Deep mutational scan, measured.
Amino acid sequence: LYHVLGLDKNATSDDIKKSYRKLALKYHPDKNPDNPEAADKFKEINNAHAILTDATKRNIYD
């Protein structure tokens, strides 16, 4: 999941948040209406963010 956000395992919560915002804006379906690959990437980014920002889920993942 870290690679989805372009981060390593030592990433801080701020790093995760910044990377998520940058990538979410880039791949958001509203910005890429005719690109199904961007929509899939956006879903991956959201999933990675949801797990890595939840301390319990992140510990389980790590």
Results as ranks from 00 to 15, higher is better:
Lys31Ala: 12
Lys22Trp: 06
Thr53Val: 09
Thr12Gly: 03
Asp15Arg: 01
Leu52Trp: 04
Asn35Leu: 09
Pro29Ile: 02
Asp40Leu: 15
Leu1Thr: 02
Asp62Tyr: 00
Leu52Gly: 02
Ser13Val: 10
Thr12Met: 01
Asp40Ser: 15
Asn46Ser: 15
Ser19Ile: 01
Ile51Ala: 10
Asp15Phe: 01
Asp40Tyr: 12
His28Ala: 12
Ile16Leu: 07
Lys57Arg: 12
Leu5Gln: 14
Thr53Trp: 02
Tyr2Ile: 00
Lys26Asp: 11
Lys31Trp: 02
Ala48Trp: 00
Asn32Thr: 08
Ala11Phe: 00
Val4Asn: 10
Lys26Gly: 04
Asp40Cys: 13
Pro33Glu: 12
Tyr20Met: 05
Leu1Glu: 10
Glu37Ile: 05
Ser19Val: 09
Leu1Met: 13
Thr56Asn: 05
Phe42Met: 15
Asp40Ile: 15
Tyr2Asp: 09
Ile16Met: 01
Asp30Thr: 14
Ala38Trp: 07
Ile51Ser: 08
Thr56Lys: 11
Asn10Gln: 08
Lys41Asp: 03
Leu1Gly: 03
Tyr27Asp: 06
Lys22Arg: 13
Ile45Met: 04
Ala24Phe: 15
Asp14Ile: 11
Lys57Thr: 04
Ala55Thr: 12
Asn46Thr: 15
Ile16Asn: 02
Pro33Thr: 11
Lys9Ala: 14
Ala11Ser: 02
Lys43His: 15
Asp14Trp: 06
Pro33Trp: 00
Glu37Thr: 13
Lys43Pro: 00
Ile45His: 01
Ala39Cys: 13
Leu1Pro: 01
Leu23Ser: 04
Pro29Gln: 05
Leu7Thr: 01
Ala50Cys: 01
Gly6Leu: 02
Ile60Asp: 15
Asp14Gly: 05
Asn35Arg: 07
Asp30Cys: 08
Lys31Thr: 10
Leu23Ile: 01
Leu52Asn: 00
Leu1Cys: 07
Ser19Asp: 03
Ala48Gly: 04
Tyr2Val: 00
Pro29Leu: 03
Asn10Glu: 06
Lys17Gly: 08
Tyr27Leu: 06
Ala55Arg: 10
Tyr2Ser: 03
Lys9His: 06
Lys41Ala: 08
Tyr20Ser: 11
Tyr20His: 14
Leu25Met: 11
His3Tyr: 03
Glu44Ser: 07
His28Gln: 15
Thr53Lys: 13
Asn10Met: 07
Lys9Pro: 08
Lys31Tyr: 09
Lys22Val: 15
Ile16Val: 08
Gly6Gln: 04
Asn10Ser: 10
Asp30Tyr: 07
Asp54Cys: 03
Asp34Ile: 02
Lys22Cys: 09
Arg58Gln: 10
Lys17Asn: 08
Leu52Lys: 04
Asn10Phe: 05
Lys18Pro: 02
Asn32Arg: 04
Pro29Glu: 11
Ala38Thr: 07
Lys41Thr: 09
Arg21Val: 09
Asn10Ala: 07
Asp34Trp: 00
Tyr27Gly: 07
Ile51Phe: 06
Phe42Arg: 10
Asp8Gln: 13
Asn35Lys: 09
Tyr27Thr: 10
Leu5Thr: 05
Ser19Phe: 00
Glu44Pro: 02
Asp8Cys: 03
Lys17Arg: 12
Thr56Asp: 11
His28Lys: 14
Ile60Ser: 15
Phe42Tyr: 13
His3Ser: 14
Thr12Ser: 08
Tyr2Gly: 07
Ser13Leu: 12
Ser13Cys: 09
Asn35Tyr: 01
Asp34Leu: 01
Lys31Phe: 05
Leu25Lys: 10
Ile60Phe: 13
Leu23Asn: 12
Lys17Glu: 14
Asp30Met: 11
Ala48Ser: 07
Ile45Thr: 09
Ser13Lys: 11
Ser19Leu: 02
His28Asn: 02
Asp14Ala: 10
Asn59Thr: 11
His28Ser: 15
Asn35Thr: 10
Asn35Trp: 06
Asn59Glu: 14
Gly6Glu: 00
His28Asp: 14
Phe42His: 04
Lys31Val: 10
Asn46Ala: 15
Tyr20Gly: 09
Lys26Trp: 03
Thr56Met: 06
Leu52Pro: 07
Asp8Asn: 07
Lys41Gly: 04
Ala24Ile: 14
Arg58Tyr: 02
Leu25Ser: 05
His49Met: 13
Ile51Lys: 14
His3Trp: 07
Asn59Lys: 11
Lys9Tyr: 10
Gly6Asp: 12
